[in-house]
């Protein structure tokens, strides 16, 4: 499912006299079947960018191409089929829960898209297990769950739509480290399920980017300053500086070792395990 932004700008109208440009002239092609990270400082336009993917926002100028759809500022069509293919999970999605039971809430999306009972039932069970909760949760009231459990249920609600593109806006914000890691593993698993599953992740956590993502998109004050694979991003100090990103400890360590005379292949070595292996090799030598 190809996704492309062509000269896309988005301007928010605050009142008739005041506007705010949140995206300016974005040209971007996103690879398919990958884990993609969207990063940038607060207010750089990440949330605005991802809301274009399922037509919650339309570009003020330029066009967005998603699958067979071309979205422009005056596009008028039923967005439902598009939204079934591109599932979007907002920041703090736990606030969208409203049904009396977890099962009904997870089924809400699939039902809206007109799937039959049997299929919905299968998806509800698959989704609740995918997010690491068991079937006993299905009959509980979503409002009685803990914050982290609510978040999982909300994500299950979007997973049950089985979207080709899963977009998540800061899904791990405010979770404990173990739950955050489990959540990231879940997204990786979802992406790996099929070669045309793409996961797009807005995040501030560079370790998540380094360990789980293949591709990085960097926004800065509404402009695109980098799009490319993860290793090259972490090898370009210039880009990281521009994006106000502090490199992960592993990268800092690797660069320090190189500076002090180690020979380490920067294109290969950027995870902890790979770094350890490279160090062992050097030390043995």
């Amino acid at each position: 499912m190809p996704i492309a932004f062509r000269d896309v700008s988005h301007v928010y109208t605050l009142d008739p006299k005041h506007t705010r440009t949140a995206l300016s002239h974005i040209d971007l092609n996103l690879p398919q079947g990958k884990m993609i990270a969207v990063i940038g400082t607060t207010g750089s336009g990440k949330s605005t960018l991802v809301q274009h993917l399922n037509a919650l926002l339309l570009p003020t100028s330029g066009e967005v191409e998603v699958d067979e759809y071309t979205l422009k500022h005056d596009t008028k069509m039923r967005f439902k089929p598009l939204r079934q293919k591109v599932g979007l999970v907002f920041q703090f999605p736990e606030y969208q829960l409203f049904e009396e039971t977890v099962a009904k809430d997870i089924a809400f999306g699939p039902k809206n898209f007109g799937l039959d009972e049997q299929e919905i039932d299968r998806r509800v069970h698959d989704a609740i297990r995918a997010v690491g909760l068991d079937d006993s949760f299905l009959q509980r009231n979503p409002l009685d769950l803990s914050g982290g459990q609510k978040r999982r249920v909300a994500i299950a609600g979007v997973l049950a739509m089985e979207p080709k593109v899963l977009v998540l806006d800061e899904p791990t914000a405010g979770l404990d480290p173990a739950s955050a890691a489990a959540m990231m593993a879940l997204f990786v698993r979802y992406q790996a399920q099929s070669s045309d599953h793409t996961v797009i992740l807005v995040t501030h956590d560079m370790d998540n980017v380094l360990n789980y993502c293949d591709h990085v998109v960097v926004l800065h004050e509404g402009s695109l300053i980098y799009t490319g694979d993860t290793p090259s991003f972490f090898n370009s100090n210039e880009t990281m500086e521009q994006a106000a990103v502090l490199p992960p400890a592993c990268i800092v360590m690797r660069n320090a070792l190189i500076q002090h005379g180690f020979t380490i292949d920067v294109d290969q070595v950027y995870t902890e395990a790979a770094l350890a292996k490279a160090i062992a090799k050097e030390v043995k030598r």
Partner: peptide
């Protein structure tokens, strides 16, 4: 926006769907 992402369509749809859409908005 969150509910629209889950397939709620307030503009189109039958009366029952509209009612559901309003509930999905009001309760949260």
């Amino acid at each position: 926006k969150a509910q629209e992402s889950r397939g709620v369509d307030i503009a189109n749809g039958k009366f029952k769907e509209k009612l559901m859409a309003i509930l999905a908005l009001i309760i949260p």
